[in-house]
């Protein structure tokens, strides 16, 4: 921590990301053909590994989703029956609904908390701001397995959550939270909130750096207080970052696996089943590779659909 200078938030280097769309722009002069051909040698290693170990398996999963296969005997053509099964099997489509519900806890609430943290950490540099920033981001770097084990204990019958409730006179509501039929999914989701809020904060702080200080000046002259300045200057200013945070956290919610695997493993009575968990279970415990693949494909389609929706609804008309 001693390495950090006292100027709270480290200024992002001249926003290289904005150049992404201009990478293919017409600004650059045409070059000799030879270089553009030789360039393939530079792209090839990355492309080969990416195609071989990510795209090819993904396409194969698509193929496997049309088969009935236990991983050992020869596969049998199944057509779309694996997909039909997903919508007939209550456990499977409920898992999809659970993962959609997790978006609230992994994405919506963390964006709110992240904005709050940003509001508190912005503005004049004060003592300790770097400390808070480092602390808030910390959960994001930890392996989710360790996070899960920690919270499993905090939520347990004799855990710290119940200890706190006892202490403030709410002994009547104490329970084993992750074992509660109605509340397990919410308890699980709140772990996601704990992990994701710092990430959202970090994105928003970076975005807030780029806001023109004269906007605040103008707002102040118009008599806007801190709250209204935040609402009318800061929030619109970090709109891009809100989109990005929405996309990243939504993918984390929908594709969650690690956390569920170690905390509830889908229980109680399937109340916290998520697609990732069922894909793993079907493919590697129950030998239903076709079903697992179909579910993974459906999950991918949902991720792409939801991410597109997030981008659409938070788009910035001016750009």
């Amino acid at each position: 921590m001693a390495r950090e200078p006292s100027t709270a938030v480290s200024p992002p280097r001249a926003a290289p990301a904005r150049g992404a769309e201009t990478a293919g722009g017409p600004a650059r002069p045409p070059r000799r053909l030879g270089r553009r051909a030789r360039g393939w040698l530079y792209v090839l290693p990355a492309l080969a590994v990416y195609l071989g170990f990510a795209i090819w398996p993904a396409l194969n999963t698509l193929r496997l989703s049309l088969l009935t296969w236990d991983g050992i005997l020869p596969p049998v053509w199944a057509g779309l029956s694996n997909y039909v099964k997903i919508f007939q099997d209550e456990a499977l489509y409920e898992a999809i609904l659970h993962s959609l519900a997790l978006i609230v806890f992994f994405s919506v609430i963390p964006i709110g908390v992240g904005l709050l943290m940003t509001a508190l950490l912005m503005g004049k540099v004060r003592r300790g701001m770097t400390f808070f920033r480092i602390v808030f981001f910390l959960p994001q770097v930890l392996p989710l397995v360790a996070v899960g084990i920690t919270w499993r204990w905090l939520y347990s019958e004799n855990g710290a959550v119940n200890q706190l409730l006892d202490a403030i006179g709410l002994a009547s509501v104490t329970r084993a939270w992750l074992g509660d039929y109605g509340l397990a999914l919410i308890a699980l989701g709140l772990i996601g909130t704990w992990v994701m809020s710092g990430l959202c904060m970090m994105l928003f702080l970076a975005g807030a750096q780029k806001i023109d200080p004269s906007l605040y000046e103008a707002a102040r002259l118009d008599g806007a207080g801190a709250l209204r300045q935040f609402r009318h200057v800061t929030v619109p200013g970090v709109r891009r970052e809100i989109t990005v945070a929405g996309v990243i956290t939504t993918i984390a919610a929908l594709a969650s696996f690690d956390l569920v695997f170690v905390t509830t493993n889908g229980g109680p009575a399937g109340q916290t089943n998520v697609p990732g968990l069922l894909v793993y279970r079907l493919a590697f415990n129950e030998g239903d590779i076709g079903g697992a693949s179909a579910l993974a494909v459906v999950l991918t389609v949902i991720v792409i659909a939801v991410v597109s929706a997030v981008r659409y609804f938070t788009r910035d008309e001016e750009r």
Partner: peptide, 10 residues
């Protein structure tokens, strides 16, 4: 945007 689930099975 590809979730790891769709890669890992195959």
């Amino acid at each position: 945007t590809l979730p790891i689930e769709v890669i890992v099975v195959a």
